[in-house]
């Protein structure tokens, strides 16, 4: 579902905070070599930045790369050109989610379940996040059952949601009065 042409997405990326910083990238690969999940990515960061510069935005936004980024900040600490790699991955995640490019990856489903729990209760309870995710990925949920039992034995399995005083106010606080454009 390509809603925009590649050029527009490229322009939008460059307008984002630090977006233009990838023009400084010297393609040294320190980021990719430092990444704990670099081998699992469709395109590790060095390659991804080149694809953005080449304007291959559909490939970029559909790739699993931002979703494998775990926010360890190793790349950012080491980048010789001081590019805020991790922050740019947040930008790409947001662009992918808001424009419908992320449905084939698992991580966005976990993110959605997490953010829905926060919007509903103001706090996160792990069992609820897992339940929301498990509906879409039953095999992962089943695999976590033995662990759930172990946690129950240790009184660490919370069934009741943790919440703030007036949870019903959280969602309007976060979302009301904000024009959510498909493309930002």
């Amino acid at each position: 579902m390509m809603t925009m042409d590649q050029k527009t997405f490229k322009r939008l990326f460059f307008e984002k905070k630090n977006g233009r910083s990838i023009l400084k990238c010297i393609q040294c690969g320190t980021c990719s070599g430092s990444c704990p999940f670099g081998n699992d990515m469709d395109h590790a960061p060095r390659e991804l930045f080149q694809l953005i510069r080449d304007g291959e935005m559909e490939e970029v936004l559909r790739s699993n790369t931002p979703w494998y980024c775990v926010s360890c900040y190793q790349c950012m600490t080491r980048c010789p050109k001081e590019i805020a790699v991790t922050d740019l991955m947040y930008t790409l995640k947001e662009m992918a989610v808001k424009n419908g490019f992320a449905p084939s990856h698992k991580m966005p489903d976990l993110y959605k379940s997490f953010s829905q729990t926060v919007k509903r209760f103001g706090r996160v309870t792990e069992s609820l996040v897992m339940a929301g995710y498990g509906i879409k990925h039953p095999l992962d949920a089943m695999g976590a059952l033995p662990l759930a039992v172990k946690l129950m034995f240790r009184k660490r399995f919370e069934v009741l949601p943790q919440k703030i005083g007036q949870p019903e106010k959280m969602k309007p606080f976060l979302t009301a009065g904000v024009e959510k454009e498909a493309l930002e």
Binding site: Y90, E94, Y111, V118, R123
Partner: peptide, 14 residues
């Protein structure tokens, strides 16, 4: 009445 900080999740969604 503290609330969730949003962790890395919210930074990646909104």
């Amino acid at each position: 009445d503290w609330n969730c900080c949003g962790a890395t999740v919210f930074m990646g969604m909104d």
